[in-house]
Design a protein around this nucleic acid. Sequence first.
RNA 1: UACCCCGUGGUGUAAUCGGUAGCACAGCAGUUUUUGGUACUGUUGGUUCCUGGUUCGAGUCCAGGCGGGGUAACCA
Length: 561
Amino acid sequence: MSDPNTPPPASDFIRDRVRADLDSGKVQQVVTRFPPEPNGYLHIGHAKAITLVFSIAKEFGGRCNLRMDDTNPEKEAQEYVDAIQDDVRWLGFEWDGLYYASDYFPQLFAWAEQLIENGLAYVDDQTAEQIADSRGTVRAPGKDSPFRDRPVAENLDLFRRMKSGEFPDGSKVLRARIDMAHPNLNLRDPVMYRVRKLHHQRTGDEWCIYPMYDWAHGQSDSIEGITHSLCTLEFEHHRPLYDWFCEKLGIWHPQQIEFARLNVEYMLTSKRKLLRLVEEQHVDGWDDPRMPTIRGLRRLGVPPEALVAFCRHVGIAKVNGTHELALLEHFVRDWLNQHAERRMAVLDPVELVIENWPSPEHVEWLEAGNNPEDPAAGTRQVPFSGKLWIEREDFMADPPKKFFRLGPGREVRLRFGFFVTCTGFDQDDAGNVTCIRCTYDPETKGGNAPDGRKVKGTIHWVSQAHAVAVEARLFEPLFREPDPASADGDAFVAMLRPDSRRGVTAHCEPSLGEATGGQRFQFERVGYFYCDAKDSKPGAPVFHRTVGLKDSWKKVQAKGD
RNA sequence: UACCCCGUGGUGUAAUCGGUAGCACAGCAGUUUUUGGUACUGUUGGUUCCUGGUUCGAGUCCAGGCGGGGUAACCA
């Protein structure tokens, strides 16, 4: 059993580096940051990054900022800014400073002028296409722009006029003057600014030139005094450029360190592909419980503590790998087992009639423990009567020896209730069992026989007269294949599982009728369920199956076949 | 085929200054059990990609292979 507060591994290549920088005195206090672009919702991969950067700051007594990397108004929106903050907080983290890259536009502009003055940046009049063509390829060097050697004064003048809006979109860019033959394509005079006459959600119409990622990101880190700038592996070849800008500017130089992004079986972590699932309505939205977004996992019922425990456990590395879904499920079950109260609900009902029950009106109230893992959770009263619902799969007309549930002549315990012995059953013309007849032993109330006899099986049940029918949604992975990301182009869409969501009516014990959004329960012997805050109405809760219970009977069965 | 990164059981990740492979999940077997859940116990899996070299000793260092991933947006 894992404890969410388990101290993280004592060392890994990032923590080793942080410790070394602290020991050498290179930095006094660790400062990290989580820098999302507010152009979409956060997903499980971000959860890993968030857990990492906030944890490192905390472990070493440092600080961690949340910074919106809002340098491209074309795709960004306030809606995402709000959602990101909400998601980070839901995970249980609180930032020291909330910043926006757009707040640094004036400083960035001044620094760009400084680079121009030092002959390290120039205004290029080429089209995007020409720039792409002249960049060369991975094997062939690029060609210098005809505007590469413009005099400093002309560059300065042009750049200022770019800012004042004199030139149309795409007509000019500011580029760093590095080396068009550099083996690292990122150093072949990368674009720093482009002209985009767009309204920005924070700066309004103040700017019509916007900085590119490489130019904005490292400088923002520097301004905030970030000591360790953690990012994913695909930014490895950007590090030389990150370093170049800081060195040429002579400003505080944070250390960029890359780690492998998180991949989990059956999950996609490409914003583009997730957007497509939403737009084509393969899912109900970004918060669909089948989505790997933080909001989706939240509505699935995954507790934030479990998600964070998972993120801590997976550790960090420089190799991209894929984690088994079973590992995530382990952490989810682990937390839920300790915290979720138990209830009884029948998802696929079949009638059970107790033939020797005193009278149709007779009801016995039984005491049921709320959580065997937590006595403090107390008990509740559950009504028992002569007509019940039990799970269809808990009865077999001709059961094998290893089946411990109900069958003709067999005795089982009805959880918290009585021992019942099956005396017979009815079937319809198609052979479906329609009713199971039993007798009960009044001496076994509560579930124990005074004569000490044992039963091998215990099954759950719900009194028909008291049952509350509610909607339960059963989810399975969105994709049929464990690695949908491996599909080329549009192929991932064809991998969608047709029945990844199934709605059923759950017949529940009365107390479940009053469940409210956000509550989590274990439906005994079935699985963990989350009361969805979005679709539930007072008196009409909607439950989402977060994860099933482990089922060792299913394994025995599979072997028998 | 240019450059960069990486290569430990099924999966993921550990192993101080080089000392002889650990942990979690999954799997298997069993004990306990008023959830075939939980808990507990035991256990199967690794020639640490390969080949050489240095060394008393290498997963750890060196060389050469092989394999995997990444990179050519006025996106981040």
